[in-house]
Simulated assay, not measured.
Amino acid sequence: MNQPYYIKSSCSIKNSQVSLNGSIVFKNETDSFSEFIKAAYKQQNTNYPKFFKMDNLSKLAFLTADILLKNENLNPEETNDIAMVFSNKASSLDTDRKHQDSIQNKENYYPSPAIFVYTLPNICIGEISIKYKLYSENSFFIFNGFNASHLCSYTKSLISSNKATQVLCGWVEFDDEDNYEAFIYLVAKEGTIKHSEEDILTLYNS
């Protein structure tokens, strides 16, 4: 008999609002992602100075995960056996553009190491891992769209093979200031919402 797995909690950021387990916990109507994410960081009492040095994709992923994990009362001082499986469509395109602009600027040519370090999408996983000491498996996949089937099957494989006791899954997309969204959820052996493709899609689209 296959062991069922469950979605313990979920958090999303899109359309200038933050939702935790289906309830809006912060909303700030603004045209600027930069202004919105700073306001959300402050309102959620996130204490992580390095946040302001991150690129936009990492800020989006980090804050979404931080809100969810704080709600789970996860102790950041202890090593936590949680794997991460993230994905998106644009990879690190927003940061890649900024890096390319710095290379093409003939009058002020100097590629910034602070920008270059974020030209891989999986760097956002590292930022979350550092704060919450998540040293288990982690992967970042690129798909044409949200892939519930992959998240479901890959997560099942990680837990059933004892590579992790829980898995933080998600879709974290940042293309530009007007095109961003994050949907992150935590999977475990116990919970109320079954971790199935149908239920994942229902949460994602809600």
Rank of each mutant, 00 (worst) to 15 (best):
Y135I: 00
A114L: 14
T79G: 00
I13R: 10
D55Y: 03
M84I: 08
I24F: 07
N122K: 01
L69W: 08
N2V: 15
E190W: 08
F62S: 09
E190S: 14
L134K: 01
Y109K: 00
K38E: 05
K53A: 07
D199I: 05
D178C: 13
M1A: 12
T30K: 11
D176N: 08
A114W: 11
E29G: 12
F140P: 00
V172S: 01
E107S: 00
F36N: 05
T202C: 09
V117S: 03
L74M: 15
C169V: 01
D178L: 13
F33M: 07
E190P: 07
E198Q: 12
D178M: 14
P121S: 10
Q166E: 14
L68A: 08
S160V: 08
A40K: 10
K163W: 00
V187I: 15
I103C: 02
M54H: 07
V85H: 08
D96R: 04
N179M: 05
N122D: 07
S129H: 12
A40E: 11
K38A: 12
N162M: 05
Q100W: 09
C124W: 02
N15V: 15
T192Q: 11
S161W: 00
N162K: 06
M1R: 05
T155S: 08
I13V: 13
K163F: 03
G145I: 04
C11F: 09
K70A: 07
S136K: 12
A182C: 03
N108L: 00
F86M: 03
P111I: 00
G170H: 02
I142Q: 02
N205S: 13
E35R: 13
I184M: 14
A40I: 10
A40Y: 09
K98E: 06
A65H: 07
Q166T: 07
I37R: 11
L69C: 10
S206D: 11
V187N: 04
E35I: 15
F62V: 04
Y185M: 06
P76F: 03
S136M: 07
P111C: 01
S102E: 11
F86W: 03
E177H: 02
